[in-house]
């Protein structure tokens, strides 16, 4: 599991690659939660790019739920984008899209979550 960061104006994009399972969920949690602290009203928009995420177990889902719970408590803007079919089918069992904002693509997500970040993303491509 790898996480790489990119900033587009007020949005932090974390690209998560590999597998979120029993071996990697703790590391993912330790990486993600400090960023969630800054995901608040007037702070960072936080978006996870799952286009290279191959696998997620319920432990990975727990970390995402925790992040959403904290972001919501801080009135922050948090979402995930570009879920692959294998990952989406697991998350669908838990009605994931009912509790966490899911977008088809990073571009689509930033277009909804932050106009300035969307502009920066398009300029940076």
């Amino acid at each position: 599991m790898q996480v790489t960061e990119q900033r587009f104006d007020n949005a932090l994009l974390l690209k998560v690659s590999g597998r979120l399972d029993r071996d990697t969920a703790d590391e993912f949690k330790a990486t993600l939660l400090p960023h969630v602290e800054k995901c608040r009203l007037g702070g960072d928009v936080l978006l996870l790019d799952f286009s290279d995420l191959e696998y997620v177990s319920s432990l990975g889902f727990q970390v995402l739920l925790l992040a959403q719970q904290k972001a919501k408590a801080q009135s922050g803007s948090f979402g995930v984008a570009a879920l692959q079919p294998a990952v989406k089918s697991v998350l669908d069992v838990a009605n994931f899209a009912r509790v966490i904002r899911c977008f088809e693509s990073v571009e689509n997500a930033l277009g909804v979550m932050s106009h300035s970040a969307h502009t920066a993303y398009l300029q940076g491509r």
């Binding site: 177990s57 319920s58 727990q62 739920l65 719970q69 919501k72 697991v90 069992v93 838990a94 509790v99």
Partner: peptide
């Protein structure tokens, strides 16, 4: 009993999806 997320976020039970996932698949 799958977790219920219809209430406020602070009341969510974080976890409990493993067994429902298995039963579904």
């Amino acid at each position: 009993v799958p977790p219920d997320y219809s209430g406020p976020a602070e009341s969510w039970r974080i976890g409990g999806w493993g067994v429902p996932l298995i039963a579904r698949i």
